[in-house]
Design a protein around this nucleic acid. Structure first.
Lengths: 195, 195, 195, 195
DNA sequence: CATGAATGAGACTTCATTCAT
DNA sequence: CATGAATGAAGTCTCATTCAT
């Protein structure tokens, strides 16, 4: 007797998630270009052929992973604005979460640094970060209104903030010995926004 | 009369430099992995075979380019400490030079973002940035002594500063429409070091 | 009460016939080589796995279909000789039947044109057309005896006749716009045999 | 010292022609679908990689070959109308040439029978046969005017004639033992056009 | 020194076939 | 009997690298 439709779908969903789970680290370690389909298959413990039932190609796996990472950041940003406190306090919480994520699960943050190796579809994917940009710009503007944040062009501050975060994440990719023990804390990063 | 050894060597050097000149932009645009030897040869206006007389392989070209970029930054750093003024003023000049370089010749800064796609030789190459790290650490410590700079762990500040710079350079790789007109100025970046 | 052996066998036969029914058009449209097992399964509305209970592989389905087509032609040929009239009249009826079949159900005739893409088993399959060849040769010889048909080598006439029929069937595979409205009638084809 | 541009181009041209020369028979024997790139490379005595410098893929090789075959037929047709004699005599010469070609170099004629296995580009390729169709229609019409050819729809006669030719060519693909010794002559084929 | 035709290893991708459910 | 997820062999294709000229 054949499986039910639902059982099938569940198997498919689980397989897909499983592949993504096991695959993220490979990309983070070897880089997008140096990762072979066979590496992914091996890491996920499935045949190469099966990968193609779930993803159209290598980039497709990577993008799915990138979206996971982006969704994580979006979630943090959206949660931050619901927190109690001043805009700067919200930004502080946001920054802490991100830095903590970088330490505890650097893999997903490292994916961002590989993104530019994507051929063309990158842009539409990272475009999703717009949500985060908007939230940051809003928090910064509010912070400026209450005098917590420097009265500079808010967009410039957003760029500076995100550039800083991105650069720190990228640092995790080059295994620099003394990096971890001197890794910046939220307070230090937020200095960038201070008046 | 045959060419002298020196003349020969000079021709070689010029050819090599020429290849590097024409090649940087290709890497910056297409990325290390998506650049083919044939792309490089075409851009440099030479045959594929000839490339191999000057470089051992694709990575070798890239690394030579990366070293150029690194040497540029080292030069700026070394010059900065000879400038007159307080440590913070020196850092200001340094930062201005770098931001200006990013705007005027972003290509070389974009190469940094591709570096992690290198298989293994990266580390020894970026290790050369140690010189810059040392200079930064020194300027920061001096700045702290005269009270211009926050009394934090100097290494943390170095990481923060370099992360920020790296992140801004990387931003240039994703062609984000509103990036250029809101690109941070030196003052804003240096805020990160303020007490 | 369990099903009887016969009932079981009947269900099997019906399933098999059903698969063949739904499958012929796929082969005719996409060609033997460009048709995937999954195409066949989908067209028949069954799972891929089930196909293997009824056929050993893709070629097996195709050959079964080809035999259907061949049996159809054989039946027409055998019926023709029982018709009343002169040999040429019988050939006329035969030809009419075939041309009509080509128009009404071109699919099966198109299969012939794909047959040569089969690896090796083709020959034993098309060998079954021998029956038709024999009947044609006989009718032609008889026709020659009564002076209705040209006194040429009968085998040459058989080849010519079958080549003509085959070529017309093949024409249906390339969807040529003006083909259908100028498609030859039996009289025109039979001209080939006239004295 | 490098080769001159012309020498290079000549090498390229010769290589391409050489590959086509050696490759036709493989396609004719094994069929389009059953021919592997490695078969082609081996037959031509070149590496697989080199094939891709001259052709985009397997179909591209096949199409180039098909065009050769088509050009051959077009040439015969164009030559025929310049011959002296009545329209039917011209058609006789044309038919003789084709039948002779089928016997002496069946390979190219067999390619036609494989053409339908092409995915989509077939149509534009065989569309080139239009030239031949036009010439045939003209000769037939002229023949009708002088009473040499049956007063039927000329297009129907063209279809019949080409179908017949195609069918005979296809027959060469199935190695039928008694085919060659009973192969039709031009007179027999032209019977189809007789009044 | 300079060229680009030629190679071949190694990646990618497809799909007939099997098998646990 | 029926399913479709999973496999893996076999083919396609790319591109760094070599080499005759």
């Amino acid at each position: 007797m054949p499986r039910t439709k639902e059982a099938c779908q569940q198997i498919r969903d689980e397989s897909r998630q499983h592949i993504l789970d096991e695959t993220a680290e490979v990309f983070a370690n070897k880089g997008l270009a140096n990762t072979k389909i066979s590496d992914l298959a091996e890491a996920a413990g499935v045949s190469q052929g099966l990968l193609y039932r779930y993803f159209t190609d290598k980039d497709d796996v990577f993008i799915a992973l990138l979206e996971r990472a982006i969704n994580g950041v979006i979630l943090i940003a959206q949660t931050s604005i619901k927190k109690k406190g001043t805009p700067l306090e919200k930004l502080h919480w946001l920054t802490e979460q991100i830095l903590q994520g970088m330490s505890e699960e650097p893999v997903y943050f490292q994916l961002f640094s590989q993104a530019m190796a994507l051929s063309g579809r990158v842009f539409e994917t990272i475009a999703k970060l717009d949500t985060v940009v908007k939230i940051l710009r809003e928090l910064i503007t509010e912070g400026q209104n209450v005098g917590e944040i420097a009265k500079r062009d808010p967009d410039q501050l957003v760029i500076l903030y995100l550039g800083c975060i991105y650069g720190l994440a990228a640092g995790k990719c080059f295994s620099i010995p003394w990096l971890d023990e001197h890794f910046p804390v939220a307070d230090a990063v937020l200095q960038i926004l201070k008046p």
